[in-house]
Structures are given as structure tokens and as C-alpha cells.
Amino acid sequence: MSEYPELDRLVDGIRRRSDDAFTDVYTLTSGGLASFAYSMLRDRRLAEDAVQQAFLELVRSAHTIKGDGRSLRAWLFKSVRFNCLDEIRRRSRRPESLMAEAPDSSVVADELELTEIDPVLERALAELTERQRTLIALRHVVGLSGAEVATVMEMTRPAAYAATERAERRLRKLIEGVESNGSATSPSMKKVEDKR
């Protein structure tokens, strides 16, 4: 029995591809999954698509799911992470011409009700690596334990703890720097400021 007793009870139903079990698991986990995806993609619609994609993959791989509710939760987060990384890669490959034809971001923001992100946090996060941002999101947005973070990131537990600790320390320092200086100090920070 794991720290997620409700999920523990649903794992067997997931393996049997029970419709009710999938509905219940979606209800229990979709919020955390969507928040995690949103932290990586900064796009609510794409974040929701990543969550749906993870559940569709779970339908296909249901019979391979092993362990308890904790394992199922880690499986879903891992799947969402890979979907987000795929999307980030797709974005980076997209030609500039297509980017130019994209609708105005303010219009999109209105349509999708994008949350306005704390500018200090946004500038500090821009300084972190993709991996560090993911570790921070898993730990502080979703609230996964160190062991769960290790599973999702496919790292050993000590390595996950150490990497998360380093990312937190760096983020704290960056936030303090931005708050005290009030201006960007590195090229990536300037880029964030220019966009604003």
C-alpha cells in the first residue's frame, strides 16, 4: 500500500482497462499532470493535450503497468514529461516563417486565459536548464517526493536529491539577484525582458 491508497485500488482496474478506473484516475491526477505540463510548455492548451496523450498511452500500455498507485502516478508523470519534451523539440524545429504566421500572443492569451507569471520568477527560471526547471516543477508545483522525482526523471535517488538541491539553490540565488538588482544580468534574462 503506497501513500496514494485511492490510486492503489484503481491500478487493477487500469490493468483491465476499466472505463470507470480510467475516469477516476484522470480525476485524481489530471490537475497535477496539467500543472507540470504547463510549467514545461507555458501553454495551457498544449499542456492539456499532453495530459490527454499520456492517458491514451496508458490505455495502450495498461497491461504492462506494474506496482501500486505510486508507480502508476510516476508512469503518468514520466509520460507527460516525454510528451512535453517532444513538443519542445517540435517547437525548436518549427521554421521561423511559421512562427511569424502564428496569431498574436496577446489574442491567444485572452482565448486560453493564460496565467500571468510572476516576472521575477520567469526571469529566474529562464536562467535554469530544462532539466533544472523540470526538477523544480516536479518538486514544488506537483509536490512529488524525492523518490518519485527520481523515478520520473530516471535518475538514482541520491542523484535526484542532489540535482534538485542544486536547482533550488540556483533558483533562490537568481530570484534574490533579480529582486535586488531589478534588471537582467545575463543574455537570457535580457531576452526575457525584451519579450516583455
Binding site: 490537475g31 495551457r44 520568477l121 516543477a137 514544488h140
Partner: peptide
Amino acid sequence: IAERMQGAFAINVSDAAASRHQ
């Protein structure tokens, strides 16, 4: 950090999206 991160990124799937997904 946790407070800032959750304030910035904690979202819920909209009802419309959730119905469509299910």
C-alpha cells in the same frame, strides 16, 4: 519557491477539456 511556483503554474484542466479527454 514552492509558493511562487504553485502560484505561477498550478492549473486545473478545464471542464470542457476534461469531458473531451474522458
